[in-house]
């Protein structure tokens, strides 16, 4: 045992310093120089102030904004300091109740709209910070937003299209609409 102790401790200390100090500091240093914006949180800056991250969703409940995915973070939705999904199982009555409540809120904000609701608009995301909704979920809300802002629906749909991206390289992931960017564009068009 004694003959093992010295190599065990020396090797552990050596490899800890290499992988736990040298390596992360090296990556931090290079990333700071080469990709400062991406490594710093992809912040969206307006008038010199950060107003959000391009990767992290924000909560919207005003009818004049597009709403994002429901968020299960606590205590407030889109709490970026405590990411979390709902972890509700498919048979959990709390899940059905939550979905029912979200359907009612969508109908209350847009009573005339009887189209089926896209599933991503009433189910909580995995991180609780999902910055995107599906193109279908954006289209579902376009008329409500246009009415609330006294805009042509066509103009709103154009903004949606401008903030939609397809699958990465045509195959990876899904097409999606960036909710925060879309709402910022709406504010710029018709405050």
């Amino acid at each position: 045992m004694k003959t093992l102790l010295r190599p065990a401790i020396s090797l552990f200390v050596l490899l800890s310093l290499v992988t736990g100090v040298l390596y992360p500091f090296l990556v931090t240093g290079v990333a700071r120089i080469a990709f400062p914006a991406a490594a710093g949180g992809s912040l969206i800056i307006k008038d010199g102030q950060p107003i959000g991250s391009a990767l992290i969703g924000q909560n919207f409940s005003d009818p004049k904004y597009f709403w994002g995915r429901p968020s299960a973070t606590a205590p407030q939705p889109y709490n970026a300091a405590a990411s979390s999904g709902s972890n509700q199982g498919p048979l959990n009555p709390a899940l059905a109740d939550a979905v029912k409540g979200r359907v009612e809120a969508l109908h209350a904000a847009d009573p005339g709209n009887q189209r089926p609701i896209p599933i991503d608009l009433v189910t909580a995301s995995a991180s609780g910070l999902d910055p995107h909704i599906s193109p279908a979920a954006a289209d579902y809300q376009a008329e409500r937003v246009a009415r609330a802002r006294h805009l042509e629906t066509k103009a709103v749909r154009q903004l949606v299209a401008a903030n939609t991206e397809g699958r990465d390289l045509g195959v990876f992931g899904e097409a999606r609409v960036h909710v925060l960017r879309l709402n910022l564009a709406l504010d710029a068009l018709a405050p």
Binding site: A96, I117, P135, A136, D139, A175
Partner: peptide, 15 residues
Amino acid sequence: VGVGETTSVSTTALT
């Protein structure tokens, strides 16, 4: 509970 797919704009099966 009134949730379903709409394909009016989406060309993906995401929803």
